[in-house]
């Protein structure tokens, strides 16, 4: 790495410094837009005691499900975890600490974390178990819950295109949590389908400016589909 060139060529380099008990953010919605190779590298590293922040927990044999299978995650912060039997079993046995967080609140906690805002008020979750133990306040006649922001030691991101300076473009609904997480990691590592030279991405079309990104690695993805639905051919 030299100057603003953030490209790394091995997964060892990509996740160098990731150790036990760290907090990691992992982009994706279901299996869509997950950094597949970076997750596999965490399995290889064998790091454990992780706090994982991700909207979902993968499926049994793919995505974050792989880390669960190897018991590498101690705490999971997610909005919906319904597709994973390993998760279920570890949650029921008390082995895994789960903090269920409303999806929009989770997205905003991460956005706020990356933007240097320590907490915010939201109406989401007022009067529900989510608000238990949290400060509430009435503002202009409506009740709000104080939610603290989230940051991470590592943010693991999947992008469609990156330039060598770490400017990113996402593709379709594979963006999801990736853009906010890219801003909220002390070290943000991006797995991109394509790496291009600076100037090749139109500055008007960049979703994540390179200032947030520390490392970029080129990868190909399996892109497994969770719910394959098609209409009948005409």
């Amino acid at each position: 790495m030299a100057g603003l060139n953030k490209v790394v060529t091995s997964y060892e380099e990509a996740l160098s410094g990731l150790t036990d008990d760290m907090t990691i953010m992992v982009g994706g919605f279901g299996l869509c837009g997950i950094p597949e190779g970076l997750i596999e590298q965490m399995v290889k590293l064998g790091v454990s005691g992780l706090t994982a922040i991700s909207n979902n927990a993968g499926v049994d044999d793919f995505g974050l499900g792989l880390l669960l299978k190897h018991r590498q995650i101690a705490t999971m912060i997610a909005s919906y975890v319904g597709e994973n039997a390993t998760f279920e079993q570890q949650m029921l046995s008390g082995e895994l600490n789960v903090i269920l967080t409303p999806q929009g609140t989770l997205a905003e906690k991460i956005r706020a974390g990356g933007a240097g805002i320590p907490a915010f008020f939201t109406a989401t979750g007022y009067g529900t178990p989510v608000a238990d133990g949290k400060e509430t306040r009435e503002i202009k006649g409506r009740h709000y819950v104080l939610e603290e922001s989230l940051t991470a030691d590592f943010a693991l991101i999947r992008a469609w295109k990156a330039d060598t300076m770490g400017n990113l473009v996402y593709r379709k609904t594979a963006a999801n949590f990736n853009p906010m997480m890219a801003t909220a990691g002390k070290i943000t590592v991006v797995e991109a389908e394509h790496i291009v030279q600076p100037g090749e991405l139109d500055p008007d079309h960049i979703h994540t400016p390179g200032i947030y990104v520390n490392r970029v690695i080129q990868a190909s993805f399996e892109k497994r589909i969770e719910q394959r639905t098609v209409k009948a051919a005409n």
Binding site: A107, E108, W160, T173, N176, N178, P179, K223, Q227
Partner: peptide, 24 residues
Amino acid sequence: DPDLINAGKQTVTAVKGASFFSSA
């Protein structure tokens, strides 16, 4: 397209005039 799903994680399409954006 595996990169184009709905909130139920089903594969879908986008209509003319559609837009994509982050969860935030």
